[in-house]
């Protein structure tokens, strides 16, 4: 399913971040995608199901969550953090600001696939230096 992806701040993400980014809290707060309920049923996903989000930049597995801010069909939200940013595009269009909002993305079901921790994700995406 095609969606427009938005990233941004949430209170849970802020709170978890202050406790360090290695913990489960941070993953629980950030490795999620908030979807419009209608989009969820179209996709066949339930609250807590893993989904794969793919953009021109890459892909990531996160947990689907029913949005409390609906309706906003076709628009999905991932809190700012490493999960969002491995699929955010780069071009700042000569302004310095990358496109953190309004990214074209494709969502597919990925039930049962493991959501990586921040540490695992970083290690996987960016090859660690030897």
């Amino acid at each position: 399913m095609e969606i427009t992806l938005i990233t941004g701040r949430t209170v849970a993400q802020g709170e978890a971040m202050e406790k360090g980014k290695t913990g489960e809290d941070f993953k629980r707060a950030c490795a999620v995608i908030e979807l419009d309920p209608e989009d969820m049923s179209k996709l066949g996903a339930y609250d807590g199901d893993e989904v794969r989000v793919r953009t021109s930049e890459g892909e990531v597995v996160v947990v689907a969550k029913k949005s409390r801010d609906a309706p906003h069909p076709g628009v999905a939200f991932i809190p700012m953090g490493p999960w969002a940013n491995v699929i955010v595009g780069g071009d700042t269009e000569s302004t310095g600001m990358p496109p953190f909002k309004g990214i074209k993305a494709e969502i597919t079901l990925a039930k049962g696939e493991r959501v990586l921790s921040a540490e695992e994700l970083i290690a996987q995406v960016y090859k660690l230096k030897e």
Binding site: K21, E57, G58, M80, N85, G90, I122, Y126
Partner: peptide
């Protein structure tokens, strides 16, 4: 923490 908050290409 730019590694969390910058887009992939930058990182």
């Amino acid at each position: 923490d730019p590694v969390s908050h910058f887009p992939r290409k930058s990182i």
